[in-house]
Design a protein around this nucleic acid. Sequence first.
DNA 1: TAGATTGTTAATCGATTAACAATC
DNA 2: TAGATTGTTAATCGATTAACAATC
Lengths: 209, 209
Amino acid sequence: MRKENISDAVIRRLPRYYRQLSELRAKGITRTSSLSLGREMGITASQIRQDFSCFGEFGQQGYGYHVRELCEEIGRILGVDRNHHLIVVGAGRLGQALMENFPFAKCGFTVDAAFDIAPGLIGSAVNGITVRAMDDITAWLRENPVDVVALTVPREAARPVSDRLIALGVRGFWNFTNLELSSEHPGVQFENIHFSDSLLTLSYRIANG
Amino acid sequence: MRKENISDAVIRRLPRYYRQLSELRAKGITRTSSLSLGREMGITASQIRQDFSCFGEFGQQGYGYHVRELCEEIGRILGVDRNHHLIVVGAGRLGQALMENFPFAKCGFTVDAAFDIAPGLIGSAVNGITVRAMDDITAWLRENPVDVVALTVPREAARPVSDRLIALGVRGFWNFTNLELSSEHPGVQFENIHFSDSLLTLSYRIANG
DNA sequence: TAGATTGTTAATCGATTAACAATC
DNA sequence: TAGATTGTTAATCGATTAACAATC
């Protein structure tokens, strides 16, 4: 029975399932079960079955789950098969690090371009991705609509740049600036990666727990 | 009344409170309340009071909270005042991006050194931080114990490198490799930043909700 | 004082876990 | 078939919200 409203907690677990299943696939394991998956991931079998049941029936009684099929199903739910288009806005070290190291293709993303204001960067290429002038982004986006902008500009630029991009029709932001961006605009999604929040929770846990 | 066991959800909210309060401070606002803080952050006043009450009594009936005091209290809880020591292991683009851009000092961290195996990097400096040879890390750590390692090595190196560092006494890992590291060793804390999990949840939300 | 807002207890809500009939 | 394991319903647990006496 497909659910209407999927909780955020469930959605956040989906990529972990996808990662674990991808690893099993890579190891050549073809079959698994909620029990063994749960043991590997530190999750109860119950929760795994509940989570999957939000999206459909992927298993077989008495057998479990076929790893490749389940992996592909979850990939589809996450949109890995959709070939999203992305640009990197802010081609400093962090933007470069993403372009150089991040496995966009495995997540179903193609990086079409990068943008920056630094004259020294404009015209260069990182990992085959051309860095263009921020001034050209309006014209460029008209010709090349994108699903997501990876926002790796300095903190001060985050708000004005994202406002401008929303006006240009961008509906998804992968936000690495340490500024909390959230959507006043309906249909615009923000995913914030707050490095400092992460480090501070670690700081807390080192002292306590 | 101080609680014994603080839930993970509460801990994850603390850095957000800290960020919001820091911003209020920067704006020169000296006084706030659970109600106004809640409005700003999209959280109920009730939850804010509950969260704070885990750690003590920071407010005053009829007045609310003094921004600076509350900010400092939460900073103390998070350990921002503790001057932790950190090294960056893996001085590629991502490691460099952190050294260059991340406000370690604001989080209470000092970056003492970076380490890498690439001959071209060894001996260079990024933002005043010397990049040293991975071969020297054992000797170096004996002289300079650290609280946290920022792990920015390639995925394949994550496991062997972290094992080695644990053996050398490191007890905190800020893990940027896309490998799930979790502690079999008691007292060793891992904080994983999974870029791909984050992008995939965004991918999901673009299509649904 | 009167108004505001806390810290805390009680009520509600939602998420996790357990149980089990269905069935491969 | 007998054993295993699903999907789902029910029970439990924990987290969020509401309510309110205390008090600045």
